[in-house]
Design a protein around this nucleic acid. Structure first.
Length: 183
DNA sequence: TGCACGATGAAC
DNA sequence: TTCATCGTGCAC
């Protein structure tokens, strides 16, 4: 497996969201390596995207989203679950891709279908907010011979407050994959 | 300083 | 459809 380079993230967010499907999220903790294949993502396009947290502007919470690409943006939602994103495009663009579901690959014991559940299973907490995804303990990698996947496009989940942006087809998942949170 | 509200998940 | 639970952003 080969770690994705910075340039992978420094691109159009929708492309990154689609191309992350089939890639592998890796987290090394206490000498143990947990790996899950990304099967569902959502693109958040920047401050003009009313569904994106960065639409609120630069705050303590959204600082990482406004930062350089290839970093993890982790936040607490509903007071009980963490969600993990990867920051995309140029610094200041404030766009990111939310990881919504993984297919268990290695050392995963809990369910991974849903953004909160996958963070639980991968032991991703706020400690990883701002973490560089080119590090050796938390990163995304690809296989040498990546199988092509059929991609389904849908509206994003839980963003009803975002007016017309709620209708945009910015949620992507691998067709027929049983670990997708909401097929 | 107070308060309404989530990029969720589970139960009913 | 309702609820748990708390950090964040914004009104006062």
């Amino acid at each position: 497996m080969k770690k994705l380079p910075r340039e992978f993230y420094d691109r159009d967010t929708t492309s990154v969201a689609k191309e992350l499907l089939g890639k592998f999220l890796v987290h090394r903790i206490n000498g143990q390596e947990r790996i899950g294949k990304i099967v569902e993502t959502e693109a958040y396009l920047g401050p003009h995207d009313l569904a994106a947290h960065s639409a609120k502007g630069l705050t303590a919470r959204t600082k990482v989203m406004f930062g350089a690409p290839g970093h993890a943006y982790v936040y607490l939602i509903y007071g009980m679950y963490y969600c993990v994103n990867v920051v995309t495009e140029k610094e200041g663009h404030a766009s990111a891709v939310l990881l919504r579901a993984l297919e268990p690959v290695k050392n995963i014991e809990l369910r991974t279908s849903g953004p909160g559940l996958l963070c639980n299973a991968m032991d991703i907490t706020k400690k990883l907010n701002g973490h560089d995804l080119l590090s050796d303990d938390f990163y995304i990698a690809e296989e040498a011979t990546a199988a092509r996947v059929r991609i389904i496009k849908r509206a994003r989940i839980g963003v009803h407050y975002a007016k017309h942006w709620a209708k945009r087809l910015l949620r992507f998942y691998i067709k027929d994959n049983k670990y997708v949170s909401r097929p």
